[in-house]
Amino acid sequence: MHRVEAHERGHPGVAPPDEPSDDDVIRASLAEPKRFGPLFDRHALPVHRYLARRIGPAADDLLAETFLVAFRRRASYTSGVGVRPWLFGIATNLLRRHVRTEERRYRALARLAAGESTPSVIEDAIDRLDAAALRRDLALALASLHRRDRDVLLLTAWADLSYEQIAAVLDIPIGTVRSRLHRARRLTRLALALEEPT
């Protein structure tokens, strides 16, 4: 409910010109529910991508759930946070029921990256091995993070939210966002440094 930065980093001007803003859409939908519809068209793709990067195919169901929860809670939405960050927050909260799926996915992706075939040209091979190792190490790092730290890290990296926006949508103090992000980044760096390709 508190004030956060009104701008949405990386996705300004979500409403096309001459169309009602996201906040106007939410307000209008209180009296006329179907007016909520344009928010799906504006935000479904980035929300789905965020979910899919985290839990893979199960994102399809969670996308629908995210918008259903948002619709049911639209009366409590406050304009400061921005609709897209708000949706990312709802999606992140829904992901908490799928922590094991998410961690299994990262570990599976790490195994996949480790087992990629070597191309014939040696330079390409080195590049691809480096990239594959990096993908493997990143996936393993994500799997090993605590869920709360991972939420903050991925809302920063993949949803492009600011500290203030993350604090607002996860309902945690900004100092907690900073400390969780600091810890997540430190552990990720550590994982990348310690697990050099062999």
């Binding site: 789905h48 991508r49 899919a52 990067r53 893979g56 994102a59 990239a131 996936a139 994500l142």
Partner: peptide, 15 residues
């Protein structure tokens, strides 16, 4: 590491 996550982190096809 934030940029690495964006460029080399787990990805998924578009909906």
């Amino acid at each position: 590491e934030i940029n690495l996550l964006r460029t080399h982190g787990p990805d998924a096809p578009e909906a």
